[in-house]
Design a binder for these strands. Structure first.
Length: 492
DNA sequence: ATCGGCTCGCGCAA
DNA sequence: TGCGCGAAGCCGAT
């Protein structure tokens, strides 16, 4: 491997030096929560080899990140268990830190930094990580680098935002071979030269002990933590091992028909949450879905013997064009979760229709409790609460109807963000804000004829959705309980 | 099931 | 300035 981690992905966060007398190189794992196909970890290994120091992997989970709840904590803890096992196998010291109380973790990084030769962390757009890293960088007397490792397109490559997917596709397409030539090592821990193991310093162990195995394994509940217990655990396992299983199943059973079946219930990869928490790498997915063959992103109708046929192409367009369009947008517009960031034409047409009479007006609580007149909409909301996700197509309808039935477009946008952030496993992700933004016109075009409330914003109806999808089973699971019968599950 | 018409902002070539 | 083009739209006709 000649190149190593591409320079465009490595972002120095302070001017402090590397320290030859460090006891270890620290990888502060905050977004790419995996040990494979991970540029950040790979960079930490490079520095450890250069400084001839062992590697220490710190994976923390704070108690006070926005929307912290049993649901997200459990998913991340599943991931920590998988990473612990992978590090044990590789002979690398892994320190999982679970913050037992708000601010209990304060000082942990600074204390480790006093012993470190260098610190490497993850660079990710949106949410709180960049602010956290910037705050830490000021107090750290050793080099701190953030590595942009979760996209095929480096965040700093395009250098501008794109109004539409087509523009992004056209921009990326000719550069794709160049980007794909720079792939992270599948097994960066295998490239670690020294066999010496890092030791977590005693003062650190005393103040910030490793998370209990019972918590990682799920034998202990999360009731003692100061997080939101009303958003419950869902029966989806987080972590790199679970993600690998989902990916295998998807590639074997659903990728080939992805184009045609995409809107069917459960035809998707189901990897969105794992991508959000960094439990799987986009590079690995692309490598496996294409068998490392090139394809032309702009070619809609490839020859029938094309090595990357239509199903995989459609999936790759989701994974690269749409996912990275949103990541690129949030890189440049960190407050993409605010209404004011919608495109001008969309805000204008929504403003012109702000006083239109709504057929129904619901409060955020009505939406949250699935108390609308529309049983299909209620079902989608129940799926969000119980499973932390909404089926592909229904997710769009869910948003369009919140726009339709809210007192104002601004409050509709805020309701969508709040409910999705709170309940969706992949909430708080750039892609979530893309989806919500798309409901209100972002990355989309104006559509006629102009309609009440929506104006030129693309319109969707529950009636058409019921015709388009086979929903009997879905409504059986999530639909309104029959009058006089208590629901089996109240929903979390 | 599939089709055309509805309709329009954008980025780019000119 | 004109033109090609577009994540899932809807509606009515066949």
């Amino acid at each position: 491997m000649q190149g190593g981690v591409p320079g465009i992905r490595v972002v120095p966060r302070n001017d402090a030096p590397l320290r030859r007398d460090g006891e270890f190189v620290l990888y502060w794992m905050i977004a790419s929560r995996r040990t494979r196909w991970n540029f950040g970890l790979e960079r930490a290994v490079e520095l450890a080899n250069r400084l001839e120091q062992p590697l220490l992997v710190l994976e923390p989970l704070r108690a006070d990140y926005p929307w912290a709840s049993d649901r997200f904590h459990r998913f991340v803890l599943d991931g920590m268990r998988a990473n612990r096992d992978a590090c044990v196998r590789a002979g690398v010291t892994y320190h999982p830190y679970l913050e037992p109380a708000v601010d209990a973790g304060k000082g942990l990084l600074a204390s480790l930094a006093r012993h470190a030769g260098a610190i490497v962390t993850d660079d990710t757009p949106g949410f709180f990580q960049r602010r956290m890293v910037a705050a830490a960088a000021e107090r750290i007397p050793v080099r701190l680098e953030a590595v942009d490792g979760d996209g095929i397109v480096p965040l700093r490559a395009p250098g501008k935002v794109f109004a539409r997917a087509f523009d992004f596709r056209r921009h990326v397409s000719p550069r794709l071979p160049e980007f794909l030539a720079e792939t992270p090592l599948p097994d960066p821990l295998g490239a670690l030269a020294g066999k010496r193991r890092a030791r977590v310093p005693d003062d650190v162990l005393a103040a910030w002990p490793a998370a209990d195995d019972d918590l990682l394994e799920g034998r202990t509940g999360l009731g003692a933590l100061p997080i939101d217990h009303s958003v419950g655990v869902i029966p989806v396992t987080g972590g790199a091992r679970a993600a690998a299983g989902l990916l295998d199943t998807f590639l074997e059973e659903r990728l080939a028909d992805y184009g045609a079946e995409r809107n069917r219930i459960a035809a998707t990869s189901q990897l969105s949450a794992h991508l959000h928490f960094g439990h799987v790498s986009a590079h690995e997915i692309v490598a496996r879905a294409t068998a490392n063959r090139p394809w032309d992103m702009l070619d809609k109708e490839p020859a029938t013997d094309d090595p990357v046929p239509p199903g995989p192409r459609t999936f790759l367009d989701q994974l690269i064009t749409w996912r990275e369009l949103g990541r690129n947008y949030c890189h440049h517009v960190p407050d993409a979760d605010r209404y004011e960031t919608l495109p001008g034409w969309a805000r204008q047409t929504l403003a012109e229709h702000a006083r239109d009479e709504r057929p129904h007006v619901y409060s955020r609580a009505d939406f949250e409790e699935a108390r609308t007149h529309d049983s299909l909409w209620n079902a989608a909301q129940r799926q969000l609460r119980r499973e932390g996700r909404i089926e592909n197509y229904l997710r769009m309808l869910w948003g369009k109807k919140i726009l339709h039935w809210s007192a104002s477009p601004e409050s509709a946008f805020a309701t969508m963000v709040a409910l999705n952030d709170r309940y969706a496993l992949d909430g708080r992700d750039p892609n979530s804000y893309s989806g919500i933004g798309w409901v209100c016109g972002r990355f989309d075009r104006a559509w006629g004829p102009e309609r009440p409330v929506f104006g030129k914003i693309r319109y969707m109806t529950s009636a058409n959705t019921r015709r388009k999808l086979r929903l009997a089973e879905y409504l059986e699971r999530f639909g309104d309980p029959e009058p006089g019968r208590l629901p089996l599950e109240s929903g979390t």
